[in-house]
Write a protein that binds this DNA or RNA. Structure first.
Lengths: 218, 218
DNA sequence: TACAAGCGTTAGAGCTTCTAACTAAAGCTT
DNA sequence: AAGCTTTAGTTAGAAGCTCTAACGCTTGTA
């Protein structure tokens, strides 16, 4: 709006930028409001005009990361294309996002920060990323409707998410894509592959191809 | 050995016990050497006779967790049984271990603690858990030896791990089991399923059955 | 009995988060 | 333009943290 507010936004952004640097080199515990303030040329307490407390700053970082990831995933599947193509694009985009900024990925999917309760704002982001995942789903000709608890829950979730005419089976596919991609990415960004000497990228690609094959089979 | 050393071990254990409580309720950042000492009835600096610093305490927790998980996984597959049975037993044991003490699972597979470099001791634990996973692997009649970079790396890893006559394909299966189980468990313990209303246990079971089916197909 | 090792203490430096009270500047209203 | 309110910064300080230094006391051993 006015100059006041714009300047305010700017200061918040700078603080977050520095916080991200600290996050990258020392983890969440390395983020210090005091140190950030000092680096910005003001005293410690000044920053508390911009963030209620340390947790609020962390929450802001999480929100940003969530939106950023959702943007990335959404962008990867906007072009209309075959399911297999969408799948590969989405997977690559997701992994790329994660490994270029592991600390941010871990902010979302690593150890939860204790004080954090997901604000409503992130719901939209979560929805967007899930929609991106569901763009990779294939047909479900049999319109499968097995009467299992899982499928009932998936159905309810689908309605809540307004996923249109996606069947539980298709929603289950979406979740599976999500868990499998995350499984490899998560172990990669936490460095669990390093001892094995196996290249995580190859494992990831194999997993993606397995999903593609499974998707084409139905 | 002597009484001195036994007493020492006892104090270390009590400190770790309290640290685990703090971990459970406030995350890794909530672990305070000072507070632990106070709860043990001694002054803060006294504990530094038992742990060089806070990081050393955390490392001890990680080591314990690693060994404990390895024990659990190993125990799940000791009984000779069909691959499918082994698979289900291993998966259940792993998930059970994780969800009954999420903070410990996250200590191993969540955001890495910055100062931590895996000591040699944990190598053995890692080896044991991987061996447990590999106990679920089926035959590889074709003795597949596709000449890919991935298979070459897997081969080298297999030799380093002394996995006997397991083929790269079988080792790849092992890694896939690992990443897929972790994918679901990780998202469950970080609470990512809660918003969906879908029961993680059902998703997990479905994933396990998918692995079993895939394993029986070869 | 003498000596060394181990375990606890207090004191304190230097960091942290965050509150309280005060000052200076900017913007809005009359 | 004068005056009031909002905002942004300051210093002071409480309460906590990690960790070092220096000092006693209590064991275990030679």
């Amino acid at each position: 709006m006015d100059r006041r507010q714009r300047y305010r936004e700017q200061t918040r952004d700078e603080a977050k930028r520095i916080a991200l640097e600290q996050l990258a080199e020392a983890g969440p515990g390395g983020i210090s409001v005091n140190a950030i303030a000092k680096r910005m040329g003001v005293t410690g307490p000044a920053l508390y005009r911009y963030f209620a407390n340390r947790d609020a700053l962390l929450t802001a970082l999480i929100e940003d990361a969530y939106n950023d990831l959702a943007d990335t995933m959404q962008a990867a599947v906007t072009h209309r294309a075959a399911n297999a193509t969408q799948m590969r694009a989405l997977a690559t985009a997701m992994r790329e996002w994660a490994i270029t900024q592991p600390h941010r990925y871990l902010l979302l999917f690593g150890t939860p920060v204790p004080g954090y309760e997901a604000p409503i704002e992130t719901l939209a982001a979560a929805h967007r990323s899930m929609t991106a995942v569901l763009a990779t789903v294939g047909e479900d000709p049999e319109h499968a409707n097995r009467r299992s608890t899982l499928y009932r829950q998936l159905g309810a979730w689908g309605e809540k998410m307004q996923t249109g005419d996606l069947t539980p089976k298709q929603l289950h596919w979406g979740i599976t894509v999500w868990t499998r991609l995350h499984g490899v990415i998560s172990l990669e960004v936490t460095g669990q592959f390093t001892l094995t000497g196996v290249d995580p990228e190859l494992v990831f690609k194999a997993e993606v191809e397995s999903l593609v094959a499974w998707g084409e089979r139905g």
